[in-house]
Design a protein around this nucleic acid. Structure first.
Lengths: 231, 231
DNA sequence: ATAAATTGTTGCATATTTATGACAGTTCGG
DNA sequence: CCGAACTGTCATAAATATGCAACAATTTAT
């Protein structure tokens, strides 16, 4: 995968479709929500890398959702791009105040959208894609593509590497096999869910250095979780 | 490649095209950005050798970008040439204050541009391109264009030399074949990705003196990496 | 306690990815 | 114009990774 996940929040399905197509063309993984409630749920579950948020929506408005997200520490760092209709530009100020990272007025070209989006993503986490992630002696360095435990090199296959990378960036939360397939294997791949078990096994085996295999925990009836707290 | 990478930052695509043509004629590799945001991303990703920066741009202005770059240690040493329109010359002082290495007023001749650019590049890194790089007995001297291992001369072809030079200046980091083609062969060259394998092989063969071929490591599923740490 | 679910392990055939050797076209200096 | 040095491609071999199915072990529900 390696590709980022974008959440599209808009009440008009036509617009969502349009956005989805544009983003999928650009190799992004898409999630959709037609209202603020669903959106919030998806955000908690999937921790998207960026949110495309429609300004005007029935029920909780986009701005309200944005405000809520920015208030919560967990979601505060997810960049938001506001979608506003022409003429609503006054809202620009309000939107940026709330914490939107950019805003774009409809109608817009897919190219422009993707360009802005890339810019925001880059600005948002200049490091996350290349900064090593460490936890309890375990260190994964995306740049050199290496994993070490207490300075000792650990060997694993490409899939296990991606799996670990995903876990490290999404700790302390359980994922179903299906979700893991989506995130680590990539959207449209047909693989048995049980295959995840096998790779989890392989990852654990690779991490078997100073008990580090305990970081990958089984959540019975659900799937797996990466956690530093005892399972 | 040997050729340097120049980043062109200007909001007018016509000007970008003009600059690109001039620079490509002079054998430089070009990157383009139409705004400060994209530019910043490219700078982080590609570490260009020099930046041609338009003074006036919508959004974050050129001067603002320059200021930001000079503030960050990682990008502070990348030379910047400011492009200013005639009449804006007052900005010259301001630009140089911010840390621009030169400035040039539109309109200008391609010849003049290239001349200035060469001058700045020469001034900018008098050593980095000619200082020998040593690592574990392996030594590459750009000046004499020689490679030695423990004082013994090592023989290799031009491409292998550039490849090694690139690796030595970008150690401990995995590169895809595509990235290597971009950096070592140069931007718009159509060559099979597999060709990289062959040159890696040739480079390794050349380095087969006291295990030094282990410095060039395979990163399965990704590409290659130069590292002094065991693979 | 027993059956049903769910997860852990392992071996293996298959699919992918790399390494290598050979070859033909080019370039460059005599 | 010739020969040596380089390059890029291929075909083939070798190395690894992957997915799956079968069976064991564990947990949960009845």
């Amino acid at each position: 995968m390696t590709s980022r996940t974008i959440l599209i929040v808009d009440d008009e399905s036509a617009i969502r479709d349009m956005l989805r197509i544009a983003l999928e063309m650009a190799e992004y993984r898409c999630l959709e929500a037609s209202n603020a409630q669903d959106a919030h749920g998806l955000i908690i579950d999937e921790k998207p890398d960026l949110i495309l948020l429609d300004w005007m929506m029935p029920g909780t408005s986009g701005i309200e959702l944005a405000r809520r997200l920015k208030r919560d520490e967990v979601t505060a760092n997810i960049p938001i791009i506001m979608l506003t209709a022409k003429g609503e530009e006054d809202n620009k100020i309000q939107g940026l105040e709330v914490g939107a990272d950019d805003y774009i007025t409809k109608p817009f070209s897919p190219r422009e959208l993707v360009a802005r989006l890339k810019a925001v993503l880059r600005r948002a986490d200049p490091q996350s894609s290349s900064q090593p992630i460490k936890v309890q002696g375990l260190c994964l360095d995306p740049a050199s593509h290496r994993v070490t435990i207490n300075e000792r090199e650990v060997d694993m296959g490409p899939t296990e590497f991606r799996l670990l990378q995903f876990f490290l960036t999404h700790q302390e939360r359980a994922y179903t096999r299906s979700q893991l397939l989506d995130h680590v294997w990539g959207g449209n791949v047909y693989v048995e869910e049980r295959t995840v078990d096998v790779h989890i096994r392989r990852l654990r085996k690779a991490l078997t250095v100073d008990q580090h295999e305990n970081l990958v925990q089984t959540v019975r009836g659900t799937g797996y979780r990466f956690s530093t707290k005892a399972g």
